[in-house]
Design a protein around this nucleic acid. Structure first.
Length: 617
RNA sequence: GGACCGGUAGUUCAGUUUGGUUAGAACGCCGCCCUGUCACGGCGGAGGUCGCGAGUUCGAGUCUCGUCCGGUCCGCCA
């Protein structure tokens, strides 16, 4: 699967005379392309860059020369014979150096779409610094290109203006964050990439050790343990742009390696972290996007689940779930009655104002859609005319529902003419997953988003939840401090809350963190509740337990998903569009062809032998 | 592990429903022409392993099975 550099059959690689050394020395550009303006008229300037486009009129040739800042039109006339004939041979993406005099464009030829459109450079010299094969795809903004072609020729894809803008914004944002944290006296400290597996739940990327046969390093899923250790070391304010690795299946917003802005502080409360990060995010949006994020409401986990069915609600969306479980306890409609009388179930209504415009086909599509999340169906009621009572409704389910229940339901939901109400009934997680996804989808389809940016904090997370096997698992991670005492935690772990907080923007979890456990007894209690024995803990992260026992200050922090943040800020549809060299959905790199095979002698040194993999020739 | 969408010229796509002559379009590319364009224009031309492999058939881009690649999602993953 080697990258095929295709040469179109009737296209030869052009031989170009390379400039002599002395010639090269004179090749100093005086201006970036976009620096040439109306005040440069009359000056001799020289520019370097790529031929963005050539317009050859026979007797006059225009080259649009592009560099990283912008573009300028250079005119070639036959008076300058050598330059003119070289310009004739230029093709798209040739790299050239050109010298000439700036003049105002003749009347009627001003291009308002171009920053430098009032002027042009009349060229006296042209030097071709490098030619180019024809592009495998056009680099203009009019052509769409498939993902595989873009990834294979990533060096060309990155030349396109939207990718340039994305990566430049990314750099600007990280510079702004660094400078902000530096002002606040944070210390940037790097932590190892070759390290040990941490109990974070995802699959690890492993690196075999040459010096310890049969043993492996793990690439970090996050620097969690190191940053806590740094707190014990007396760095009271730490940050790092940390590369993290998780070997799980990919999504549009997930890459196997990604970047977190990792932050940790000693002697602070959750409140202080929240206000610091609120300020930091506000500052970054203001500095880099000129956006004012005025309000960061705080929502409890419980409220988020109840009103939005998710712990990362998109608050741009005005729709809310309304709990109606109580109404159906005595209802004869089995689909509602069963969940109404089951503790692990819920019945929620999603009232969509003006939802009457949804067609039967769309409702069927929504039914299929919620099926993805395990919902067995999607009940709905159309409110055609609420003044007519039951006769003003249209729904496949109302015939199963008692009039008195229906009446209370409609008044509880405060229905209006033209509404459509969707219902989710069943196991709570299924109802939450399906209705929260439906809520997002309907808002998109009906264009309901009421603002551009809606950040919020989600707080008061439970300490644990039960997994399929009935075992406790941490909602955040096992180093998160509960709000209760050791005794209370032991007595009733499932109702314990934490000092954890997530920052959510437009329905995306930007980051999360918590006050950590800094007390050895509490840490052991939590680990034991998670069925991690002391001995196992000692083996896996004994250094942390030890640090906790040697004067570790109380500390708290959080990590921000940097790629996702840039994705939101740029409006990119995929995380790949904010990463220079991303991987495909199957975690391969189409540019380098990674991963690749290792040579036999390398494997031998690493003490690795394969079983059950056929050797390819 | 599972569901779905896609793979046809350098690129983006039509053609697949209903199998049938020489597989089309646009952009790009090449040649010629053109002194004011700016996604320049005109004329002409080249360019195809229809992802790959089996099968059905007189005949497969089109139907069947398998497989590979890209993408979206569920599971998984904070």
């Amino acid at each position: 699967m080697t990258a095929k550099v295709s040469l179109q059959k009737n296209q030869k690689m052009q031989k170009i005379p390379l400039p002599k050394k002395h010639h090269l020395r004179k090749m100093i550009r005086t201006h970036k392309c976009n620096q040439i303006g109306i005040d440069s008229v009359g000056q001799e300037v020289s520019v370097t860059g790529w031929v963005h486009r050539r317009r050859d009129h026979g007797g006059v040739i225009f080259l649009d020369i592009r560099d990283e800042n912008g573009m300028v039109q250079v005119v070639y006339n036959p008076e300058f014979k050598e330059a003119f004939s070289l310009a004739e041979s230029c093709r798209n993406e040739y790299v050239i150096f050109s010298k000439g005099v700036v003049r105002e464009r003749p009347e009627g030829t001003i291009n308002d779409n171009l920053e430098t459109g009032k002027i042009e450079v009349v060229a006296s010299d042209l030097l071709i610094l490098n030619s180019s094969l024809p592009m495998p795809f056009q680099l203009d903004e009019y052509t769409s290109v498939g993902e595989d072609t873009r990834l294979k020729y990533r060096f060309l894809d990155l030349r396109r203006s939207d990718m340039q803008e994305n990566l430049r914004l990314r750099s600007k944002v990280s510079a702004t964050l660094r400078s902000y944290l530096d002002q606040k006296e944070f210390v940037e400290i790097e932590t190892p990439l070759l390290t040990k597996a941490t109990p974070e739940g995802a699959r690890d990327y492993l690196v075999p050790s040459r010096t310890y046969p049969g043993q492996f390093f793990a690439l970090p899923q996050s620097p969690q343990l190191f940053k806590q250790t740094l707190m014990a070391s007396g760095f009271e304010k730490y940050f790092q742009f940390a590369r993290c690795f998780r070997d799980e299946d990919l999504r549009a917003d997930r890459q196997p390696e990604f970047t977190q802005l990792d932050i940790e502080l000693s002697f602070v409360t959750a409140e202080e972290v929240i206000s610091l990060i609120t300020e930091l995010i506000t500052e970054v949006f203001k500095e880099t996007l000129s956006v004012d994020l005025d309000d960061f409401p705080k929502i409890s986990y419980k409220e988020a689940i109840s009103k939005y069915g998710t712990d990362k609600p998109d608050l741009r969306n005005p729709l809310e779930l309304i709990e109606v479980k109580e109404l159906f306890k005595e209802c004869e409609f089995k689909v509602f009655k069963e969940p109404a009388n089951d503790v692990d179930s819920r019945i929620a209504a999603l009232r969509v104002p003006n939802g009457e415009i949804l067609t039967r086909k769309q409702i069927d599509d929504y039914t299929d859609f919620v099926g993805n999340y395990g919902a067995k169906g999607l009940a709905y009621i159309r409110v055609e005319d609420p003044s007519k009572g039951k006769d003003g409704l249209q729904s496949p389910i109302i015939k199963f529902i008692e009039d008195s229940i229906l009446e209370t339901l409609l008044s509880n939901l405060n229905v209006q003419k033209g509404d459509i109400i969707f219902f989710g009934a069943g196991k709570s997680n299924v109802v939450n997953d399906s209705l929260s996804a439906l809520r997002d989808l309907i808002a998109k389809d009906l264009n309901l988003l009421k603002c551009e940016w809606a950040p919020c904090w989600v707080v008061d997370f439970p300490m644990f939840e039960k997994n399929k096997n009935g075992d406790l698992t941490p909602l955040h991670h096992p180093f998160t401090s509960p709000t209760c005492s050791v005794e209370e935690l032991k007595k009733d772990p499932l109702s314990a809350l934490t000092n954890a907080y997530d920052i959510v923007l437009n329905g995306t979890e930007l980051g999360g963190g918590s006050v950590r456990i800094h007390d050895k007894d509490m840490q052991q209690t939590v680990l034991n509740l998670l069925n991690i024995e002391d001995k196992e803990a000692e083996e896996k992260f004994g250094f942390l337990i030890s640090a906790l026992q040697h004067g570790c200050p109380p500390h708290a922090g959080l990590a921000i998903g940097f790629d996702r943040m840039i994705m939101l800020m740029t409006g990119a549809e995929s995380i790949r569009d904010v990463i220079a060299f991303p991987k495909t959905q199957t975690a391969s790199c189409m540019l380098t062809d990674a991963p690749g095979k290792a040579a036999d002698d390398q494997l031998q040194e690493l003490h690795i032998r394969f079983h059950g993999i056929e050797k390819e020739e």
